[in-house]
Design a protein around this nucleic acid. Sequence first.
DNA 1: TAGATTGTTAATCGATTAACAATC
DNA 2: TAGATTGTTAATCGATTAACAATC
Lengths: 218, 218
Amino acid sequence: MNPVTEDADAGRTPERLALGVAARLSRYLQVLTQAKKMGKDKISSQELSDYTHVNPTQIRRDLSGFGKFGKRGVGYSVDGLVAAIRDILRTAGQHNIALFGAGNLGKAIASSDIFADHGFRVVALFDSDPAKVGESVGPHTVRESVDLERAVVDEEIVVAVLAVPAAAAQPLADLLVEAGVKIIFNYSETLLDVPPSVTVHTSSPAVDLLYALYFYLT
Amino acid sequence: MNPVTEDADAGRTPERLALGVAARLSRYLQVLTQAKKMGKDKISSQELSDYTHVNPTQIRRDLSGFGKFGKRGVGYSVDGLVAAIRDILRTAGQHNIALFGAGNLGKAIASSDIFADHGFRVVALFDSDPAKVGESVGPHTVRESVDLERAVVDEEIVVAVLAVPAAAAQPLADLLVEAGVKIIFNYSETLLDVPPSVTVHTSSPAVDLLYALYFYLT
DNA sequence: TAGATTGTTAATCGATTAACAATC
DNA sequence: TAGATTGTTAATCGATTAACAATC
């Protein structure tokens, strides 16, 4: 039940998705992945709305722009929708991640399957502390950052996840840019300066919390 | 140099901010906090734009709706703008957090100052594992969850941060709702079912990554 | 069939941007 | 003064929503 039997995508979506649509589709995907784990087979736009806080009409609208994925009176097939959204986002494949920092946060990420569920595979774990090199963390062995440039090329690493102290973040980012990494996921608080061709996403739980708090306090 | 000398806010912003505005103001605040750490005194809308990827005109527009915080030809005072935004978001005070789970992730959060920078104070660290109770993590001592309900009331806890295994998340959320917690910050992958009066924010780095990847691949 | 839920329209609302005078 | 950057307007564009026929 492949939702796209012809290679018609190039014709249908010649341009990028609007930022908002891409963000929402990613969120639907997360909920669908969890719903599947919980044994759900079908899901309605109303249920998706309960978990994402996106208006159900808008969910149907977002999806219907790309095809008719639902069944009236029934809802959407969880598997079918996962496949459809992955196709729309063109992120159906496997993507390799390098993880930097084997402290508490690095270990937490390396041991979790939060990335694996979405097709991201941690293929390397680096730490600058010689005492940590060689240590085992989950399925990984901590490596020296000296291998960095070769690893990026050899292991086709597109994304670097930074779980390092604030002071180490910018120098490391510079090395990563030079090595050809295109997306840096920054868990430190530092503001990173990189060329425009590289995307930095800084994780900021405190910002999310401020935002949630505003709507609680008002 | 208090940007709001009269208590005119009630008159000026009788309603909630639009969702987008509140989200963006939170992000400006994060950048400003970091800029201050880096010793910056003044900042322009262009610089703010470089770090937030928000259009500089929109930044000025967002801010000018609440007052004239900048100086033409100069920019914004970092300190002044931090105070102004905290005032607009009404999150100028201290807010108490309870943290659940003293595993790798819980330890990482407890030791970080990522929340402290924004006025959030971790006042309690709980773990259900008796072996961990009593252990020291940064400035905290791991407590038993039995104290939960009393702690929420006595220590005025508004936000609970969940760094627990997926299987433990929903039962814990049920307890927290009963104890009167209003905001749950969920670091597990689980979809949590809570009453409408409680806000759940599920952290999903993989979703953010999918989103970033889409714009890299296209 | 009866009930439920999608797909889609039409209308509104808010977000976004370019441009530029005001002014530090 | 000259250069820079804000505050603000006006015009456009996309997001959001209610409503309902189509149909499973």
